[in-house]
Design a protein around this nucleic acid. Structure first.
Lengths: 144, 144
DNA sequence: TAATATGTACCTGTATCAGATACAAATACA
DNA sequence: TGTATTTGTATCTGATACAGGTACATATTA
């Protein structure tokens, strides 16, 4: 199970909302994991130019505003690929068989269409989209 | 890595195209796996009413025509769920924190929209869609 | 009755991922 | 200047998921 993407979104919301610097330890506490894991994800986000930080100095800073940062960028940063890979394809089909020889490219093409659509959805949604949904939920909770 | 879905599609194409009964052993040879695994998938497809078979009698038969059988049905049969589950969500966010308390439902809602679209795509594509793509590729290969 | 095939249970090997520890490098602050 | 703090990074471990594989009961065919 790969939860880097959801952890990264959680982390970025914290960074974006917090007024005082959030250390990897405080972030880990909210995400429910350990500081090392947070720093691992931070490294990926930093490499992609999404956040800024420096050794010894507490906290992380967003390089983009929340409505400029797409979920697509976050996804690519933490997964290290621009492929969503919706479904895995079995690895050893038999080349001696017509179906076996063509199944991989056929499914790659077919699944690729779906994946492209999912990617374009991710490009249209931003960190702000996410924060807005959350804010609505928080408001609903409060008015109960 | 879960390749039951792609293996199932491969298997169903073989069953659909073959003129003589395909045993689990022959199917396994083309898919590149072992007969037991094929029979495991066959069991799931059978339980979903997609194929028919009987103990001792060689081969499997489709209960629907290739253009009636959607990829959605195949997916649900082998995965045992109608959730596509595009992205995993981290498990232990901290309830004491506002963000931690709302991150899971927020992401479930957000990802759910993407997943619903992917599902509706799968509902529109059938086994025949898949076979058509493959046939095109085979034709191209032959005219080279 | 023998051979063959499906149905199913069970164990194993491998890959992946988060959890965790450790420590170097840089900064902040007294 | 020196100590505490924090990021950055490597490495190991534990848990989990999945396909590979064996075994055998059950049903059919000839």
């Amino acid at each position: 199970m790969d939860t880097k993407f959801s952890s990264a979104i959680h982390m970025l919301i914290l960074i974006s909302e917090a007024e005082t610097p959030m250390s990897s330890e405080k972030i880990a506490e909210s995400v429910g994991t350990n500081p090392s894991y947070i720093r691992k994800i931070a490294g990926l986000l930093k490499k992609a130019g999404i956040i800024e930080s420096s050794q010894g100095r507490s906290g992380f800073a967003l390089n983009l505003s929340a409505d400029e940062l797409t979920l697509y960028q976050i996804f690519c940063a933490v997964e290290g690929t621009s492929d969503i890979h919706l479904f895995d394809i079995h690895r050893n089909p038999n080349d001696q068989c017509v179906v076996g020889r063509h199944i991989q490219p056929t499914l790659t093409e077919l699944f690729g269409e779906l994946e492209a659509k999912a990617l374009s959805e991710l490009k249209q949604k931003t960190l702000k989209t996410c924060m807005d949904i959350m804010r609505d939920r928080i408001n609903k909770e409060e008015t109960k």
